[in-house]
C-alpha cells in the first residue's frame, strides 16, 4: 500500500476544500491524508451488502410547512456578524460576474 499522496493530489483536495496548504505543509498532508484514505479503503473489502441506503436514521417523512411568513431579521442584524459591509449589503472582494 502506497503511504503517500502525490503533491498534486494534496493540492487538488485542498482546492476542493478551499484550504490553503503552504509549501511547508504539503509533505505532512501527503502522509496524513493518505493514512486516512487507507483507513476508508477498508470499505472496499465489504461485499454481500444490500444496496438500500440509510441517508440518515429518519423517524418520519418530511413534514411540509404551510406557506405562511414568519419573523425576519432587520438588515442591521444581518450585518451584525459580517466582517465587511456596505450600506445594507454584505460585501466581498469583487467577483468576476457570472451573470450577463
Amino acid at each position: 500500500m502506497n503511504n503517500k499522496l502525490t503533491k498534486e493530489e494534496v493540492l487538488h483536495v485542498a482546492h476542493l476544500a478551499r484550504i490553503k496548504v503552504g509549501e511547508e505543509e504539503i509533505e505532512k498532508y501527503q502522509v496524513e491524508l493518505k493514512q486516512l484514505l487507507n483507513d476508508v479503503d477498508k470499505i472496499k473489502e465489504v461485499d454481500g451488502y444490500d444496496e438500500e441506503r440509510m441517508i440518515a436514521p429518519w423517524e418520519r417523512d418530511a413534514v411540509l410547512r404551510d406557506d405562511e411568513p414568519g419573523e425576519m431579521l432587520n438588515p442591521k442584524e444581518v450585518l451584525k456578524n459580517a466582517p465587511r459591509h456596505s450600506g445594507n449589503y454584505i460585501a466581498v472582494p469583487i467577483v468576476i460576474s457570472e451573470e450577463a
Partner: peptide, 9 residues
C-alpha cells in the same frame, strides 16, 4: 482541516 480535505475527496 484534515477531515474537511479527506471528506471533500
Amino acid at each position: 482541516k484534515r477531515r474537511i480535505m479527506v471528506g471533500s475527496y
